[in-house]
């Protein structure tokens, strides 16, 4: 069990040891985003821009345009929301090779409540031309996906979370950008998930199997580019399609899957997520229950 933000912090330290060119920017949240791990070991390569997210994105882009390998972090709400236009017009339009690592995404922020629960970032980021959008689900996938980022030119948005996640993957797993991971080969249905909802989908899959409903789970860790082929394959091979995300169902992975389906293999999709509402303060598990982001809700679509 480890949060993806902590995995990010550990990745940075490891990368920082190997590559002197790596620098990290933060916006007064180094402890929370876990970039303080890098700061501790490389104080001269960590830059705290303060509570100024627009300046954070601009400064990070300037350094990246000058050849540095740049990671910039703050909470998803502020990176994708407050600094949206900087991300769009500077990182996006100038196609800057910068890694924007957003922690504390989604309702899973819990107690801080709606102002800090970013449930729009997938939508906001994937609409920017040339932006790569990634959403790892656990410790290993976070580190492997971040490693992949080093091989892709252009702006990248990496959606990370606050709370601990189950260990799902092993060191043998490969995470190619533009691909997805499929668990099982059931023909009764497909559950599309990403980030925090992958473990929920996998739990639902286990429960359903006990009731002789065999589904597969697809981890859309690469939101943009997305694994179109696998979505179409699952639509062809399985009966019921469900998506589940800690995000608005307007513009999130449900919309993404629906876009692919409508163009290549029209088929009904049931979207689970936040339906045009703001979040709620409280224990993250309780908040998930309120919005139906639960294995029980997935199961109810099949049985």
């Amino acid at each position: 069990m480890k949060s993806t933000r902590k995995a990010y912090g550990e990745f940075l330290v490891e990368l920082g040891r190997k590559d002197q060119n790596v620098i990290v920017f933060d916006a007064d949240l180094a402890k929370a985003t876990c970039t303080d791990m890098f700061k501790k070991e490389f104080p001269n390569r960590h830059f705290d821009i303060g509570i100024s997210e627009q300046d954070l994105v601009g400064t990070a882009c300037g350094a990246a345009l000058s050849g540095k390998t740049v990671f910039a972090s703050t909470f998803a709400m502020f990176l994708s929301g407050r600094a949206y236009e900087q991300v769009r017009n500077t990182a996006g339009y100038s196609h800057v090779n910068v890694n924007l690592c957003a922690t504390h995404s989604g309702l899973a922020v819990g107690e801080d409540g709606p102002t800090h629960q970013c449930i729009e970032d997938i939508s906001l980021m994937r609409v920017i031309p040339g932006m790569t959008v990634l959403s790892p689900a656990d410790d290993i996938s976070t580190k492997k996906i971040l490693s992949e980022c080093l091989n892709i030119n252009g702006p990248k948005y990496i959606r990370l979370g606050r709370s601990d996640t189950m260990d799902i993957y092993s060191e043998e797993d490969v995470f190619e950008i533009g691909k997805s991971k499929t668990f099982g080969n059931g023909y009764n249905g497909t559950i599309f998930a990403t980030g925090n909802t992958l473990s929920i989908a996998l739990e639902a899959k286990e429960e359903l199997a006990k009731n002789n409903v065999n589904v597969r789970v697809v981890d859309l860790y690469s939101i943009k580019p997305v694994d179109k082929e696998n979505i179409i394959k699952c639509a062809k091979e399985t009966e019921l399609l469900v998506s589940i995300e800690d995000h608005s169902i307007i513009g999130g992975i449900g919309s993404l899957v629906a876009d692919v389906l409508s163009q290549y293999y029209p088929k009904k999709l049931i979207k689970i997520g936040v339906n045009d509402k703001f979040g709620k303060s409280g224990n993250a598990k309780k908040v998930y229950e309120l919005f139906g982001i639960t294995k029980e809700n997935i199961i109810s679509k099949f049985i």
Binding site: Q54, V57, G58, T59, G62, S66
Partner: peptide, 16 residues
């Protein structure tokens, strides 16, 4: 947006 970007460029020059 220009000054933030300039800061990043100037910082990169200093680092290197």
């Amino acid at each position: 947006q220009g000054l933030s970007i300039a800061n990043g460029m100037a910082l990169a020059k200093k680092i290197d």
